[in-house]
Amino acid sequence: MNAQAFPDLDALREAGKAGLARALARLERSFGQDEAAALLDAADASPKGEVLGLTGPPGVGKSTLTGALVRAFRAKGATVGVIAVDPSSSRSGGALLGDRARIPSDPEDRGIFIRSYAARDRLGGLSDLAFGATVLMRALYDRVIVETVGVGQSEADVALVGDTIVLAVQPASGDALQFIKAGVMELPDVVAVTKADLGQPAKRARDDLEGALSLTGAGEPGWEPPVALVSSETGEGLDVLMSHLSAHSAFVREGGRRERRRTAQSEARLEAALRGLFGAEGLRAGRPLLAEAAGGPFAREAHVARLLRERLNGAA
Protein backbone atom coordinates (compact mmCIF):
# COMPACT_ATOMS: atom_id res chain seq x y z
CA MET A 1 0.00 0.00 0.00
CA ASN A 2 1.36 3.42 -0.95
CA ALA A 3 2.06 5.29 2.26
CA GLN A 4 1.12 8.57 0.55
CA ALA A 5 -2.24 7.52 -0.89
CA PHE A 6 -5.40 5.83 0.22
CA PRO A 7 -6.14 2.44 -1.30
CA ASP A 8 -9.45 1.95 -3.06
CA LEU A 9 -12.15 -0.18 -1.44
CA ASP A 10 -11.23 -3.32 -3.37
CA ALA A 11 -7.62 -3.01 -2.20
CA LEU A 12 -8.78 -2.43 1.37
CA ARG A 13 -10.91 -5.56 1.24
CA GLU A 14 -7.82 -7.54 0.29
CA ALA A 15 -5.45 -5.76 2.70
CA GLY A 16 -6.90 -7.29 5.87
CA LYS A 17 -6.80 -5.83 9.36
CA ALA A 18 -3.32 -4.34 9.05
CA GLY A 19 -4.26 -2.57 5.82
CA LEU A 20 -7.42 -1.13 7.34
CA ALA A 21 -5.49 0.00 10.42
CA ARG A 22 -3.04 1.89 8.17
CA ALA A 23 -5.88 3.48 6.22
CA LEU A 24 -7.63 4.61 9.42
CA ALA A 25 -4.38 6.04 10.77
CA ARG A 26 -3.96 8.03 7.56
CA LEU A 27 -7.58 9.11 7.77
CA GLU A 28 -6.87 10.61 11.20
CA ARG A 29 -4.11 12.73 9.66
CA SER A 30 -6.04 13.88 6.60
CA PHE A 31 -9.72 13.92 7.55
CA GLY A 32 -11.48 16.73 5.69
CA GLN A 33 -9.04 16.70 2.78
CA ASP A 34 -10.11 15.78 -0.75
CA GLU A 35 -8.38 12.39 -0.89
CA ALA A 36 -9.91 11.25 2.41
CA ALA A 37 -13.31 12.57 1.34
CA ALA A 38 -13.09 10.58 -1.91
CA LEU A 39 -12.46 7.32 -0.06
CA LEU A 40 -15.24 7.96 2.45
CA ASP A 41 -17.71 8.92 -0.27
CA ALA A 42 -16.87 5.72 -2.15
CA ALA A 43 -17.50 3.77 1.05
CA ASP A 44 -20.72 5.70 1.70
CA ALA A 45 -21.96 4.77 -1.79
CA SER A 46 -21.10 1.07 -1.35
CA PRO A 47 -22.45 -0.04 2.04
CA LYS A 48 -22.00 -3.74 2.63
CA GLY A 49 -23.22 -4.14 6.19
CA GLU A 50 -25.51 -2.71 8.82
CA VAL A 51 -24.57 -0.50 11.74
CA LEU A 52 -25.70 -1.26 15.28
CA GLY A 53 -25.40 1.68 17.65
CA LEU A 54 -25.05 0.63 21.28
CA THR A 55 -25.55 3.27 23.94
CA GLY A 56 -26.37 3.48 27.63
CA PRO A 57 -25.08 5.01 30.86
CA PRO A 58 -21.51 4.42 32.07
CA GLY A 59 -21.12 1.15 33.96
CA VAL A 60 -24.12 -0.57 32.39
CA GLY A 61 -21.91 -3.19 30.74
CA LYS A 62 -21.85 -1.93 27.14
CA SER A 63 -18.39 -3.32 26.42
CA THR A 64 -19.26 -6.73 27.85
CA LEU A 65 -22.46 -6.74 25.79
CA THR A 66 -20.49 -5.68 22.72
CA GLY A 67 -18.18 -8.66 23.23
CA ALA A 68 -21.16 -11.00 23.52
CA LEU A 69 -22.70 -9.58 20.33
CA VAL A 70 -19.40 -9.93 18.46
CA ARG A 71 -19.23 -13.60 19.40
CA ALA A 72 -22.87 -14.13 18.42
CA PHE A 73 -22.44 -12.47 15.01
CA ARG A 74 -19.22 -14.37 14.34
CA ALA A 75 -20.96 -17.65 15.26
CA LYS A 76 -23.41 -16.86 12.45
CA GLY A 77 -20.53 -16.32 10.03
CA ALA A 78 -20.83 -12.51 9.88
CA THR A 79 -17.74 -10.32 9.82
CA VAL A 80 -17.76 -7.61 12.49
CA GLY A 81 -16.15 -4.21 12.88
CA VAL A 82 -16.31 -2.37 16.21
CA ILE A 83 -15.95 1.34 16.89
CA ALA A 84 -15.39 1.73 20.65
CA VAL A 85 -15.78 5.36 21.67
CA ASP A 86 -13.79 5.95 24.83
CA PRO A 87 -13.51 8.90 27.20
CA SER A 88 -10.90 11.43 26.12
CA SER A 89 -7.64 11.91 27.95
CA SER A 90 -7.58 15.41 29.47
CA ARG A 91 -3.86 15.59 28.66
CA SER A 92 -3.57 14.21 25.10
CA GLY A 93 -7.16 14.25 23.88
CA GLY A 94 -6.78 10.62 22.83
CA ALA A 95 -8.88 7.62 23.80
CA LEU A 96 -8.22 6.08 27.22
CA LEU A 97 -8.85 2.61 25.71
CA GLY A 98 -10.79 1.34 28.70
CA ASP A 99 -13.70 0.03 26.63
CA ARG A 100 -11.59 -1.68 24.00
CA ALA A 101 -9.70 -3.58 26.67
CA ARG A 102 -12.97 -5.16 27.80
CA ILE A 103 -13.98 -6.41 24.33
CA PRO A 104 -12.34 -9.82 23.81
CA SER A 105 -11.21 -10.68 20.30
CA ASP A 106 -8.89 -13.12 18.57
CA PRO A 107 -6.07 -11.23 16.85
CA GLU A 108 -5.84 -14.08 14.32
CA ASP A 109 -9.52 -13.76 13.36
CA ARG A 110 -9.64 -11.74 10.13
CA GLY A 111 -13.39 -11.38 10.56
CA ILE A 112 -13.12 -9.01 13.56
CA PHE A 113 -11.67 -5.51 13.66
CA ILE A 114 -11.82 -3.18 16.70
CA ARG A 115 -10.89 0.49 16.72
CA SER A 116 -11.02 2.94 19.62
CA TYR A 117 -11.78 6.63 19.20
CA ALA A 118 -11.94 9.41 21.74
CA ALA A 119 -15.18 11.32 22.18
CA ARG A 120 -13.08 14.51 22.15
CA ASP A 121 -15.17 17.68 22.45
CA ARG A 122 -18.28 16.37 20.74
CA LEU A 123 -21.17 16.62 23.21
CA GLY A 124 -23.06 14.11 21.09
CA GLY A 125 -20.47 11.46 21.91
CA LEU A 126 -19.05 10.65 18.45
CA SER A 127 -16.18 12.53 16.83
CA ASP A 128 -16.07 13.22 13.09
CA LEU A 129 -13.30 10.61 12.82
CA ALA A 130 -15.54 8.00 14.43
CA PHE A 131 -18.29 8.82 11.94
CA GLY A 132 -15.87 8.46 9.03
CA ALA A 133 -14.44 5.20 10.34
CA THR A 134 -17.95 3.80 10.75
CA VAL A 135 -18.84 4.61 7.14
CA LEU A 136 -15.60 3.03 5.92
CA MET A 137 -16.04 -0.11 8.02
CA ARG A 138 -19.67 -0.40 6.93
CA ALA A 139 -18.36 -0.89 3.38
CA LEU A 140 -16.04 -3.71 4.51
CA TYR A 141 -17.89 -5.70 7.21
CA ASP A 142 -21.27 -7.41 7.52
CA ARG A 143 -21.90 -5.78 10.89
CA VAL A 144 -20.46 -2.66 12.51
CA ILE A 145 -21.07 -2.05 16.21
CA VAL A 146 -20.62 1.52 17.45
CA GLU A 147 -20.34 1.55 21.23
CA THR A 148 -20.68 5.04 22.68
CA VAL A 149 -18.89 6.47 25.67
CA GLY A 150 -22.13 6.79 27.69
CA VAL A 151 -25.50 8.31 27.04
CA GLY A 152 -26.63 11.57 28.61
CA GLN A 153 -28.99 14.40 27.83
CA SER A 154 -26.99 15.53 24.81
CA GLU A 155 -25.27 12.35 23.66
CA ALA A 156 -27.49 11.39 20.74
CA ASP A 157 -24.95 11.22 17.90
CA VAL A 158 -25.33 7.45 17.75
CA ALA A 159 -28.74 8.05 16.15
CA LEU A 160 -26.93 9.71 13.23
CA VAL A 161 -25.02 6.57 12.31
CA GLY A 162 -26.95 3.46 13.43
CA ASP A 163 -29.39 1.43 11.36
CA THR A 164 -30.49 -0.09 14.67
CA ILE A 165 -30.03 1.65 18.02
CA VAL A 166 -29.79 -0.47 21.17
CA LEU A 167 -30.16 1.21 24.56
CA ALA A 168 -28.59 -0.75 27.43
CA VAL A 169 -30.01 -0.22 30.93
CA GLN A 170 -29.05 -1.91 34.19
CA PRO A 171 -31.51 -3.03 36.90
CA ALA A 172 -32.22 -0.98 40.04
CA SER A 173 -30.54 2.11 38.61
CA GLY A 174 -33.50 4.46 38.23
CA ASP A 175 -32.45 5.02 34.62
CA ALA A 176 -35.95 4.69 33.18
CA LEU A 177 -37.18 7.91 34.83
CA GLN A 178 -33.97 9.77 34.01
CA PHE A 179 -34.19 8.69 30.38
CA ILE A 180 -37.75 9.98 30.09
CA LYS A 181 -36.57 13.35 31.44
CA ALA A 182 -33.63 13.40 29.04
CA GLY A 183 -35.63 12.37 25.99
CA VAL A 184 -33.37 9.34 25.51
CA MET A 185 -36.35 7.01 25.14
CA GLU A 186 -36.91 8.50 21.70
CA LEU A 187 -33.64 6.97 20.50
CA PRO A 188 -33.76 3.16 20.79
CA ASP A 189 -35.10 0.61 18.36
CA VAL A 190 -34.34 -2.15 20.89
CA VAL A 191 -33.74 -1.96 24.65
CA ALA A 192 -31.52 -4.41 26.53
CA VAL A 193 -31.74 -4.75 30.32
CA THR A 194 -28.31 -6.02 31.31
CA LYS A 195 -27.43 -8.26 34.26
CA ALA A 196 -30.57 -10.34 33.82
CA ASP A 197 -29.06 -12.89 36.21
CA LEU A 198 -30.07 -10.53 39.06
CA GLY A 199 -33.60 -11.89 38.65
CA GLN A 200 -36.49 -9.84 40.01
CA PRO A 201 -34.75 -6.42 39.83
CA ALA A 202 -34.07 -7.05 36.16
CA LYS A 203 -37.71 -7.96 35.53
CA ARG A 204 -38.85 -4.79 37.33
CA ALA A 205 -36.51 -2.72 35.18
CA ARG A 206 -37.97 -4.37 32.07
CA ASP A 207 -41.50 -3.54 33.20
CA ASP A 208 -40.53 0.07 33.99
CA LEU A 209 -38.92 0.49 30.59
CA GLU A 210 -41.85 -0.99 28.73
CA GLY A 211 -44.07 1.51 30.52
CA ALA A 212 -41.70 4.36 29.71
CA LEU A 213 -41.60 3.40 26.05
CA SER A 214 -45.40 3.34 25.86
CA LEU A 215 -45.60 6.79 27.48
CA THR A 216 -43.06 8.40 25.15
CA GLY A 217 -44.38 6.84 21.95
CA ALA A 218 -40.91 5.60 21.07
CA GLY A 219 -40.22 3.92 17.77
CA GLU A 220 -41.17 4.81 14.23
CA PRO A 221 -44.55 3.92 12.69
CA GLY A 222 -44.86 0.17 12.42
CA TRP A 223 -42.21 -0.64 15.04
CA GLU A 224 -42.54 -0.75 18.82
CA PRO A 225 -39.14 -1.08 20.54
CA PRO A 226 -38.97 -4.44 22.38
CA VAL A 227 -37.18 -4.92 25.69
CA ALA A 228 -34.89 -7.92 26.23
CA LEU A 229 -33.41 -9.23 29.47
CA VAL A 230 -29.76 -10.11 28.85
CA SER A 231 -26.85 -11.43 30.87
CA SER A 232 -23.63 -11.02 28.92
CA GLU A 233 -21.79 -13.17 31.48
CA THR A 234 -24.08 -16.22 31.28
CA GLY A 235 -25.53 -15.67 27.82
CA GLU A 236 -29.08 -15.64 29.18
CA GLY A 237 -31.43 -13.78 26.84
CA LEU A 238 -28.79 -13.15 24.16
CA ASP A 239 -30.72 -15.25 21.65
CA VAL A 240 -33.83 -13.12 22.33
CA LEU A 241 -31.84 -9.92 21.81
CA MET A 242 -30.38 -11.29 18.57
CA SER A 243 -33.91 -12.15 17.42
CA HIS A 244 -35.04 -8.56 18.09
CA LEU A 245 -32.04 -7.21 16.16
CA SER A 246 -32.79 -9.50 13.22
CA ALA A 247 -36.44 -8.43 13.23
CA HIS A 248 -35.52 -4.74 13.22
CA SER A 249 -33.01 -5.29 10.41
CA ALA A 250 -35.77 -6.84 8.34
CA PHE A 251 -38.10 -3.97 9.24
CA VAL A 252 -35.70 -1.21 8.14
CA ARG A 253 -34.96 -2.99 4.86
CA GLU A 254 -38.63 -2.87 3.88
CA GLY A 255 -39.90 -0.19 1.51
CA GLY A 256 -36.65 1.77 1.38
CA ARG A 257 -36.72 2.69 5.11
CA ARG A 258 -33.01 2.07 5.57
CA GLU A 259 -32.05 4.22 2.58
CA ARG A 260 -34.27 7.09 3.75
CA ARG A 261 -32.88 6.78 7.27
CA ARG A 262 -29.29 6.86 6.05
CA THR A 263 -29.94 9.87 3.81
CA ALA A 264 -31.46 11.78 6.73
CA GLN A 265 -28.58 10.72 8.98
CA SER A 266 -26.01 11.89 6.42
CA GLU A 267 -27.55 15.35 6.13
CA ALA A 268 -27.87 15.66 9.91
CA ARG A 269 -24.24 14.59 10.34
CA LEU A 270 -23.13 17.19 7.80
CA GLU A 271 -24.89 19.93 9.74
CA ALA A 272 -23.49 18.66 13.05
CA ALA A 273 -19.96 18.69 11.59
CA LEU A 274 -20.28 22.27 10.30
CA ARG A 275 -21.82 23.41 13.59
CA GLY A 276 -18.90 21.84 15.44
CA LEU A 277 -16.37 23.62 13.21
CA PHE A 278 -18.01 27.01 12.75
CA GLY A 279 -20.79 27.33 15.32
CA ALA A 280 -24.44 28.14 14.75
CA GLU A 281 -23.70 31.18 12.56
CA GLY A 282 -21.36 29.15 10.40
CA LEU A 283 -23.98 26.44 10.00
CA ARG A 284 -26.54 28.98 8.86
CA ALA A 285 -24.08 30.33 6.31
CA GLY A 286 -23.14 26.82 5.23
CA ARG A 287 -26.64 25.45 4.58
CA PRO A 288 -27.16 27.14 1.21
CA LEU A 289 -23.62 26.17 0.23
CA LEU A 290 -24.35 22.54 1.09
CA ALA A 291 -27.47 22.64 -1.06
CA GLU A 292 -25.42 23.82 -4.03
CA ALA A 293 -22.39 21.56 -3.50
CA ALA A 294 -21.89 18.54 -5.73
CA GLY A 295 -20.57 15.09 -4.87
CA GLY A 296 -20.89 12.79 -1.88
CA PRO A 297 -21.45 13.94 1.70
CA PHE A 298 -17.79 14.03 2.70
CA ALA A 299 -16.73 15.90 -0.46
CA ARG A 300 -19.55 18.39 0.15
CA GLU A 301 -18.42 18.84 3.75
CA ALA A 302 -14.80 19.45 2.70
CA HIS A 303 -15.86 21.92 -0.02
CA VAL A 304 -18.18 23.94 2.21
CA ALA A 305 -15.67 23.95 5.08
CA ARG A 306 -13.05 25.42 2.71
CA LEU A 307 -15.47 28.13 1.55
CA LEU A 308 -16.38 29.06 5.12
CA ARG A 309 -12.72 29.20 6.16
CA GLU A 310 -11.98 31.47 3.20
CA ARG A 311 -14.79 33.78 4.27
CA LEU A 312 -13.50 33.85 7.85
CA ASN A 313 -9.95 34.55 6.69
CA GLY A 314 -11.19 37.29 4.37
CA ALA A 315 -13.13 38.91 7.19
CA ALA A 316 -10.16 38.77 9.56
Rank of each mutant, 00 (worst) to 15 (best):
I145T: 00
R143D: 09
G124S: 12
M137Y: 09
R102M: 01
G124P: 10
P87G: 01
R100N: 07
G111W: 04
S90A: 15
Y117P: 05
S88E: 05
G111F: 07
D99F: 02
G125D: 01
S92Q: 05
L129F: 09
I145F: 01
R138H: 09
V144R: 07
S127Y: 10
V151D: 08
I145E: 01
V135E: 09
V135C: 05
V135F: 10
V135M: 10
E108Y: 02
L96F: 00
D121G: 07
G94C: 03
G98C: 12
A139P: 03
S89K: 12
G150W: 15
A101R: 14
R102P: 01
S88T: 15
P87Q: 02
R122S: 14
M137A: 05
R120Q: 11
R120S: 04
D99R: 02
D128K: 13
S90N: 09
S105F: 13
V151G: 07
I103W: 08
I103E: 03
A101C: 04
T148V: 07
I103M: 07
D142Q: 12
L136I: 15
A130C: 02
L140A: 06
R115C: 08
Y141A: 09
R138A: 10
I112W: 05
L140T: 07
D128L: 13
V151T: 15
V146S: 02
S89R: 08
V135Q: 13
S92M: 04
S154V: 06
R102N: 02
Y117T: 11
E147L: 13
R100Y: 10
D106Q: 09
A118Y: 00
R143C: 07
P104I: 11
I103P: 01
R100E: 12
S89Q: 09
S105N: 05
P107V: 03
M137K: 09
Y117K: 09
L126V: 05
I114P: 08
S116I: 13
R100K: 15
V135W: 12
A95C: 08
S88R: 03
L123P: 14
R143M: 07
R122Q: 14
G150H: 14
G98T: 07
A130P: 02
S154C: 01
S154W: 06
G94T: 03
G132K: 05
I112P: 11
D99M: 05
D142H: 14
S88L: 06
A133D: 08
G132T: 04
L126R: 03
Y141F: 15
T148H: 08
S90V: 13
P104H: 08
G98K: 12
R91S: 06
G93Y: 14
F113T: 02
S127I: 04
L97G: 10
Y141P: 09
I112R: 14
S105C: 08
G152S: 12
D99N: 01
P107S: 01
D128A: 15
Q153R: 15
A95N: 04
R120I: 05
R100T: 13
V151S: 11
V149I: 11
G125A: 03
F113W: 06
A119P: 03
S127W: 07
Q153E: 14
V135S: 11
L126C: 00
E108P: 00
F131T: 00
P104K: 05
S90L: 12
A139M: 01
I112K: 10
D99H: 05
L140K: 10
I114E: 10
G132L: 10
F131H: 13
R110D: 09
G125S: 02
L97Y: 06
T148F: 11
A119T: 15
L136F: 15
S116T: 14
R143N: 08
I103G: 02
I114D: 11
